[in-house]
Amino acid sequence: MIPAGFEYHRPSDIASAVSILQEHGDEARVIAGGHSLIPMMKLRMADMGHLIDLQDIDALKGISLMGDTVTIGAMVTQHELITSATLANAVPIIKEAALLIADPQVRYVGTVGGNVANGDPGNDMPGLMQCLNASYELSGPDGTRTVAAREFYEAAYFTARDDEEILTRIHIPVPAAGTGYAYEKQKRKIGDYATAASAVMLRVVDGVCAEASIAMTNLADTPVFAEAASAALYGRALDDAAIGDAVSAAIEATDPVADNRGPVEFKKHVASVILRRAIDRAASRAS
């Protein structure tokens, strides 16, 4: 568990970080909280000559609410997500999900940007961001562009981000008042990735579902945004039949692999159970 040697860079603005990336190409990686990258380096599974530490870049920090959009800097820690009053009011599901990530020590250092940018299907934030229809701001040599979270993930560790780009900010549309939400996660222990996790947002008007958004975590090589499941709820009363249809549609969209947590059959069953619970809880919170 001793990493190979590397050059350490600590730029103080985004442009400098991008130019170091440009200079060294795939020899360089940016590091945020390091919870994914450092273990890989210690295992010598990630071997790069240049490590670009983003912690001195102030432009990557902070949480703000502008109009109907919440903007979260990539270097905001999970701990800050949990303690932000702005988020607690505007998008409370983020706190509920962040509390289920690892443990307090990890959350003091682990960042939301690292969590969404790494493309690890085990991370909780990508699925949550898809559920919330967030978009990611990317800065590169050609300037800045925005990619929807629902379009960002291509395969495990492969995303729409170019090698010379840095994910700088996350923009989240503030859900309408009265939107019900729930984040459910089953894991073997504190610090584990999900056996299955699901994020649910839904709105109920006049007894029928007016809006639904469902995403699931660690059940495929990317987060699973289950459009068909949302559609199954839309326009219907949230009764057993509707929820059953949504759950079936969501599970249909998953493609889990067997690992130490258990075989595929088990994971799909657990996913269906926790998704049902998440829908129930979100419905109970909708007003």
Binding site: Q186, T195, R261, P263
Partner: peptide, 16 residues
């Protein structure tokens, strides 16, 4: 008796 083995026991006993 991790989650999956307990689940399997329940499943094998027809409890699902």
């Amino acid at each position: 008796h991790d989650h999956w083995r307990i689940w399997k026991t329940a499943n094998d006993l027809g409890l699902h």
